[in-house]
Nucleic acid binder design. Sequence first.
DNA 1: TTGAAAGCGCTAACAA
DNA 2: TTGTTAGCGCTTTCAA
Lengths: 314, 314
Amino acid sequence: MVNLADVAHQAHVSKMTVSRVINHPEKVSTEVRTAVMAAIELIGYQPNRIAKALVNHQNYVIQFLVLEDVVTVEPNYAILLLHLADVLNQKGYTLEISTTITDNDHIDGIIVSGWRQSDLLALEALRVPVVLYGESPTDHDMAYVDVDNRIGTMLATRHMINAGYQKIIYVGMDVDLPFSNERELGYLDTMVAKKRVSRVYTVANHSHIAEQLIHNIMAQLPKNTGIVCATDRIALGVVRALNKKNGVPEQYGVIGFDGVFIDQISSPQLTTVHQPFAKIAQSLVDNLFLQLQNSELVMQRIAPELIRRDTTRA
Amino acid sequence: MVNLADVAHQAHVSKMTVSRVINHPEKVSTEVRTAVMAAIELIGYQPNRIAKALVNHQNYVIQFLVLEDVVTVEPNYAILLLHLADVLNQKGYTLEISTTITDNDHIDGIIVSGWRQSDLLALEALRVPVVLYGESPTDHDMAYVDVDNRIGTMLATRHMINAGYQKIIYVGMDVDLPFSNERELGYLDTMVAKKRVSRVYTVANHSHIAEQLIHNIMAQLPKNTGIVCATDRIALGVVRALNKKNGVPEQYGVIGFDGVFIDQISSPQLTTVHQPFAKIAQSLVDNLFLQLQNSELVMQRIAPELIRRDTTRA
DNA sequence: TTGAAAGCGCTAACAA
DNA sequence: TTGTTAGCGCTTTCAA
């Protein structure tokens, strides 16, 4: 293991100077700096995260808290997780995944997904910075990052209108959380703006239940109907129900939301509102580090993108 | 932050004694030990992982290396990952997720998934212990943990036979890796043992391609055929293709492999061979820690379980 | 059986 | 601008 002392020896300076070149390069003269950097390069020095952590009273560990049941784990979390790990690794941080809220002092910050209203109090009480994935209710002043849900369903609804579907309905999910309400509002606002008559159904977020719903209300679904769905899971069930009548996308349009995995194993493949998880991960981490520095709270919504596939007309 | 010195002070002993109570309790007299443990309990002391790591030249970081394309990320990896994180956390370890092989010295060991034959040389060259998820080819002497793939398809094939399906075929995947070959052998062996005529098809591991295959070979699929599939993805496509003829499970039985997520969003829900990911995660970690201690190499196969759902007859 | 000293690799304060 | 000293919290010698 190459350490500071080795570099110092190689560059004929003190350990302190090497440390400064790494952490406060502006406090070192140009010649010395270049010499030290050459030495670092030459002997392939890499700072020891552990020693750094000890002296700085930091851990270089961020916790990813998944409060949703592991069994029902969404591919969404998986993809977010992978991006998160990537971003953190680049900053020399490591990830700890947890499924329960505990007040550890071996972590520097927490990123939370799959939380419910009832978790927020416990999360606010934590001593370390917390960032939520998903918009928080207005009565809680917590930092969050989310896709702009309202814009997402707005894009979807507009696309339905432009594609010429006559009747356009919304199948939402039975969860009273901001992200869910926002998605519904994106649909409703757009319908009002375009002077259309809106119709909202609500189901649990399972493909089979959505499938059942469509079977039940088939009589109220004339041909040329567009169905905007709150999630890809719901959309998957809707497509399955309709597909048997061979109406997608000619007679029935379907648009999902999330754009991870499920959209692709659907047949036909889903048109969907895609959450840009790489950006979301980056933003979550940036947000957390901002708090680490200034204890500023930031709420951030990231624009989604409509991906056109095979469940809507061109 | 409560530290060793605080405990020592509370218990009227030296720091060293406290350290010994934690790491080598047998070297401390019973009275002192109980006194120290009481003190630890009283003031809520938790060892500082960082300081420990520094002095022991360990990192308490395990890398989970995902060599498969992130975009096509399987829910399988996600669920394995979550279990892995759980097991590691309990041992005071943290997880680093990486998508590229690099020879770091800030990690203590590597667990690899999604590897290909061509990755093995680079993995063998690493200085830290490595455990593969998935059986390795016999020409590489590497530690691995895997579900017992052969037993998995054996269970599936037997179940088909017991359920009375007349013709039984296998739809495998076009990958020349041990796990894939083993799954095929589980089917073939069972068919031979039961004096049945076997028939193997091979496709890429995508639901749409499997769906297409079934359409193409429909003429060779008389009623009362059982279809053993190498993965849930393939099974999903098979069910979709057959479902239109309303033949599952009465006329056609389908069994998948993996048992994570996809099996449940299929309609009807898949009968499948379930990989016990909690056990696999535990075993991967145990295996790695064994190497950390003795540099013993272990190959381990874990028995899967058939989950009966709605794509096979009772 | 217990304790004192030294040091893991690093950085913040202070001194030169 | 650079170097010296001290110490983060822990554990392994070595001595009592």
